[in-house]
């Protein structure tokens, strides 16, 4: 009977050696995802660092006699409605997009992480107070919070970063707090307390390092989420307009051309999607490696 259903999955055959080879294969498969993701991210980061080496045209050069040209060998991604080479604009646009992604994760992650850590470690009324404040932030959907803050601060790259960062704080705070609480209860903490370590020392040397990994995983994925939120703001009319637009702005402003010149918004859209996708793959992999028994977040 076992042979009748044969070999569709490796694990059925059982046995420790089989299981071992299977694990290796799973690793290999997962890693080819990882390698792909790594290549995408490396390329995009290279675009942000040295765009002039990669882009064939200036991102601001408007070839007004060749607007909305379909992709060709001269223009890999075609030209947009200004007559700009879309490939070059996307390459240069990676700068602002990555800046929005990374900067808002750093700001939001640090702030959220700090709130969560203090709440979790201090406990008591500090915890209650901070977590109620966090609840208040959570009751307002993130995109609305970002929308309101971006509206309040006005347009500008840093303001977008701040808006996206604030809207991500509650998520980081929650996960950090949960992690700190679970570590606080472990025996090695009690052990170091019994040998007379100060609470700060315990926190700094033992609790924090052990609590960081889920935050890092969330931050990795958060880079992608931040870019998506930023593009949502562009869609709702609160993006930034800089000389070289970021991907969200490109996608949002090109969307009206989808039925007449599909390439204008498709390539910025793909750039966002592939980057977020790659970041997610890496985040997943980090999660597997750091904490294999990790349950649902939040």
């Amino acid at each position: 009977m076992r042979e009748a259903v044969t070999a569709s999955t490796v694990w059925r055959r059982g046995g420790s050696r089989r299981l071992f080879t299977f694990r290796l294969r799973r690793l290999a498969a997962a890693d080819s995802f990882l390698i792909g993701a790594g290549i995408i991210i490396a390329f995009i980061i290279a675009c942000a660092l040295v765009p002039s080496l990669i882009a064939p045209y200036s991102p601001t050069a408007m070839l007004t006699d060749s607007i909305m040209q379909a992709p060709s060998s001269a223009h890999l991604f075609g030209t947009d409605y200004f007559g700009r080479d879309i490939f070059s604009v996307v390459v240069y646009g990676s700068r602002d997009s990555l800046f929005i992604g990374f900067a808002s994760v750093i700001v939001g992650g640090l702030a959220g992480g700090a709130i969560g850590a203090i709440a979790g470690y201090a406990g008591g009324w500090v915890d209650s107070l901070l977590m109620r404040c966090n609840d208040i932030l959570m009751t307002i959907p993130g995109i609305l919070l970002a929308l309101a803050i971006a509206g309040a601060l006005g347009k500008g790259l840093f303001n977008i970063v701040l808006a996206v960062a604030v809207s991500s704080i509650p998520g980081y705070a929650r996960i950090m707090r949960a992690q700190i609480i679970s570590i606080k209860g472990r025996t090695f903490i009690a052990a170091s307390r019994s040998v007379g370590a100060t609470p700060f020392h315990i926190f700094w040397k033992h609790v924090l390092p052990n609590a960081l990994s889920p935050l890092l995983v969330m931050a990795a994925i958060g880079v992608g989420t931040a870019i998506l939120t930023g593009s949502g703001l562009s869609f709702l009319g609160l993006g930034v307009l800089r000389e070289i637009p970021d991907w969200g702005t490109l996608l949002s402003q090109g969307r009206g051309y989808l039925t007449v010149a599909w390439w204008i918004c498709t390539f910025p859209g793909l750039a966002i999607t592939l980057f977020v996708l790659a970041v997610n793959i890496i985040g997943d992999r980090m999660r597997d490696r750091l904490d294999p028994k990790k349950n649902a977040k939040g």
Binding site: T259, L277, N280
Partner: peptide, 17 residues
């Protein structure tokens, strides 16, 4: 992964088209 990674307004418009 694509579901997670695409801006929703973009996938929405693609679906409409």
């Amino acid at each position: 992964l694509f579901g997670i990674s695409m801006p929703t307004f973009w996938s929405g418009i693609l679906l409409i088209v």
